[in-house]
């Protein structure tokens, strides 16, 4: 049952990776690099061919086939409706690989003061964690850490970059890299 879900998600990720690639190429050749980043709100999509070599239960499996991050609105820490599918996939994957413990990193965009953003990103990390726990993940497996605005995922001072930097990221503690 679990494996079915995982493989279904994997298939979806595969399809979406295929679907977005031509767009990225087109964007890169026509528009600027920032717009390319803006066009790909999903985490870095792996080349489709490599997906089949990814070991189940690995960090890479999680990033490619599940998605390691969820996004937040400006100055908000409540879970967005469009992020629930990713959280459900994360919870399902974690239930499947019960030996894995995780750190949920909370992040904020640069449009706030440093100390407030530390607090805000801590709130996001905990909202992310709480949602996973509500889906059955043992809270003892989940730690949180706030990085405030210190570690942006995307560089650039525009709304597209900021939207991708307001995020919670699941980092696996004891899973093989790939």
């Amino acid at each position: 049952m679990r494996f079915k879900i995982v493989s279904l998600i994997a298939a979806m990720a595969f399809v979406s990776a295929c679907a977005t690639e031509p767009e990225e190429d087109a964007a890169a050749s026509s528009a600027g690099a920032q717009e390319t980043q803006a066009a790909a709100p999903a985490p870095a999509a792996a080349p489709a061919a490599a997906a089949e070599q990814i070991a189940p239960g690995s960090q890479r499996d999680f990033i490619v086939n599940v998605g390691d991050r969820v996004y937040f609105d400006f100055d908000r820490s409540d879970i967005r409706g469009d992020q629930v599918a990713t959280l459900e996939a994360q919870a399902a994957w974690l239930q499947n690989f019960r030996g894995v413990t995780i750190v949920v990193e909370g992040h904020a965009d640069e449009r706030g003061t440093r100390e407030y953003n530390l607090a805000l990103a801590e709130r996001r990390a905990n909202a992310h964690k709480d949602y996973l726990v509500s889906l059955g993940v043992d809270p003892a497996r989940v730690e949180t850490v706030s990085y405030g605005k210190e570690r942006p995922a995307v560089l650039g001072s525009n709304e597209a970059a900021w939207a991708q930097n307001r995020r919670g990221v699941v980092v696996l503690r004891n899973a093989p890299a790939s």
Binding site: E115, A119, E122, N126, A127
Partner: peptide
């Protein structure tokens, strides 16, 4: 400040 479980 001390942040715990989402509250500072």
């Amino acid at each position: 400040s001390h942040a715990r479980e989402g509250n500072s």
